[in-house]
Computed example of a mutant assay.
Amino acid sequence: MAETPISLSVKSRGKLIKFLPTDYAVTPSSPSSDLYAAFASKTRLSPHRLRIVNDATGQAVPNVRDISLATAGLHDGSTVSVKDLGPQIAWRTVFIVEYLGPLLLHPLIFELRPYLYSSPSSWGSAVPAPSNLQTLSLVLITLHFIKRELETIFVHRFSLATMPALNIFKNSAHYWLLAGANIAYWTYSPRAAAQAHNPPISPTDLLLGAGNDPLTALGVILFAAGELLNLNSHLVLRDLRRPGSTERGIPRGFGYNWVTCPNYLFEIVAWVGIALVTRSWSTWVFVVIAGGQMVLWAQKKERRYRKEFGDKYKKKRFAMVPGLI
Rank of each mutant, 00 (worst) to 15 (best):
N171L: 09
A173S: 15
H174C: 08
Y175R: 10
Y175H: 11
W176R: 07
W176M: 07
W176V: 12
L177D: 07
L177M: 15
L178V: 14
L178T: 12
L178E: 06
A179G: 01
A179I: 06
A179W: 09
G180A: 05
N182S: 14
I183Q: 13
Y185Q: 03
Y185M: 10
W186E: 05
W186D: 03
T187I: 08
T187P: 03
T187N: 06
Y188F: 15
Y188P: 02
Y188S: 07
P190I: 06
P190Y: 02
P190V: 06
R191M: 09
R191W: 12
A192N: 04
A192I: 03
A192Q: 02
A192P: 01
A193F: 01
A194D: 09
A194E: 07
A194T: 08
Q195F: 01
A196K: 11
H197I: 11
H197N: 12
N198W: 01
P199G: 11
P200Y: 03
P200A: 06
I201H: 04
S202Q: 06
S202L: 08
T204M: 02
T204S: 14
T204K: 12
T204D: 09
T204C: 02
D205M: 00
D205K: 00
D205E: 10
L207N: 02
L207A: 14
L208F: 07
G209H: 04
A210F: 00
N212H: 12
N212D: 15
N212I: 00
N212Y: 01
D213S: 14
P214I: 05
L215D: 01
L215S: 11
T216L: 03
A217I: 00
A217R: 12
L218A: 15
L218R: 00
G219K: 06
G219A: 06
G219P: 05
G219E: 09
G219I: 02
I221Y: 01
L222G: 06
F223E: 09
F223K: 04
F223G: 11
A225L: 15
A225I: 15
G226K: 02
E227L: 13
E227D: 02
N230K: 02
L231F: 15
L231S: 03
N232F: 01
N232T: 00
S233Q: 01
S233N: 14
L235A: 02
V236E: 05
L237Y: 05
L237G: 08
R238S: 04
R238E: 05
L240Q: 10
L240V: 02
R241Y: 05
P243C: 04
S245D: 13
S245I: 00
S245V: 00
T246F: 03
T246H: 13
E247R: 13
E247Y: 00
R248Q: 13
R248C: 04
R248T: 12
G249N: 07
P251Y: 03
P251S: 10
R252V: 13
R252W: 04
R252N: 11
G253M: 10
G253I: 11
F254T: 14
G255N: 08
Y256T: 11
Y256S: 10
Y256K: 07
Y256R: 05
N257G: 15
N257K: 13
N257F: 12
W258D: 09
W258Q: 10
V259N: 08
T260H: 09
C261D: 13
C261P: 01
P262E: 10
P262H: 10
N263I: 08
N263W: 03
Y264A: 11
L265W: 07
L265M: 14
E267S: 13
E267K: 03
E267Y: 11
W271Y: 15
W271K: 10
